[in-house]
Design a binder for these strands. Structure first.
Lengths: 187, 187
DNA sequence: GTCTATAGAGTGATAGAC
DNA sequence: GTCTATCACTCTATAGAC
């Protein structure tokens, strides 16, 4: 019998991809154990609260990653540089449109009722971090807020369309268009 | 024993709302029968193929509705009028952002693998109908296609954000912005 | 009475929890 | 692995339209 030792951060990342691909209801325990190679014992060792705890920890993990890699730079560093890096981070995180937004997917069905706060906070912070950066780059407040909202809306929509059309190019075109528009706005 | 008689179109519409709210995997037979008041007997009478047939008929029903109310007008009628009506139809169909796009939600998880064609065709036809209308209104082709894609991307993104933020206003703002942009483009 | 659509208990399989 | 609850689905009795 071969025993593989997992660390909790690995377990979170592995289970996250199953939820991302199948959604909350679609991610059955048997699919989770089959796809991750984690045993049922390991899964309940890491997540005594079961599926609900797995999803909560995954969302917290995603949120922490975005705060570190994107939101705090937008809030604290040179705004033009942070915005430029945001497009690269977005493209690489979502694998140029091949990976969906787990939190966006959770928002669409009743999974939202289980986790309203983390879902709301994630998008709210993205928009407000970007809006703040645009404001520091010289854009007056109401337009900065509108542009930030347009960008996050566009990213989510492009992820949906890329999956629906089976054509990731729509994601790249959308990012390029939004990047151009924000650069023009703070030029 | 009280017997309620349903017609198939009513059954499709009732079941559609359950799928729309819960997603494909989340819409269990017990939720479907509980929420629609259809008995299991009725459900399997109308949809002998079970859940898969229900979802297929629901998507066909949605597609037919959009073709009649939106895509054919965009393809055949006065383009400026049809585009103006498209914004009203979109706002009313999605209940100003309170109702999600079932086909968009299906695209995000493995449900897409069950119904790749209807999902792809729905969005493809929306974009190409709108692109054609913009072209007939005088917009040169490559820009018409890009604007149409931007509009459909924005609608989908706004539906996700409206649900995620629990704030339907983002949907109204997005529709207003896109409407303005397309009108400016063909002015 | 006939026939079709509905009601809802019952089926084996599989879910999540432990 | 074991548990119970719930899953998708089947089946039979019968209500109600003719």
């Amino acid at each position: 019998m071969v025993r593989t030792v997992f660390e909790k951060p690995d377990a979170i990342a592995l289970v996250a991809e199953v939820f991302r691909e199948l959604g909350y209801e679609g991610a059955s325990m048997s699919e989770i154990t089959a796809r991750t190679k984690l045993s049922k014992g390991s899964v309940y060792h890491f997540f005594p609260g079961g599926k609900e705890e797995m999803a909560a920890e995954i969302m917290a993990h995603i949120d922490t990653w975005f705060v570190t890699e994107m939101f705090r730079p937008l809030e604290e560093e040179d705004p033009r540089e942070a915005i430029a890096r945001m497009w690269e981070t977005t493209d690489s995180y979502f694998r140029s449109g091949r990976r969906v937004c787990l939190i966006g997917a959770f928002a669409l069905d009743e999974t939202r009722e289980r986790f309203p706060r983390p879902i709301r906070d994630y998008f709210h912070r993205w928009i407000s971090a970007l809006s703040g950066a645009l404001a520091r780059a010289g854009k007056p407040q109401p337009e900065a807020q509108a542009l930030a909202e347009e960008a996050v809306v566009g990213i989510q929509g492009a992820l949906t369309l890329a999956r629906a059309l089976g054509d990731e190019a729509v994601f790249g075109r959308t990012l390029a268009r939004l990047k151009q528009r924000l650069e023009t706005a703070v030029a």
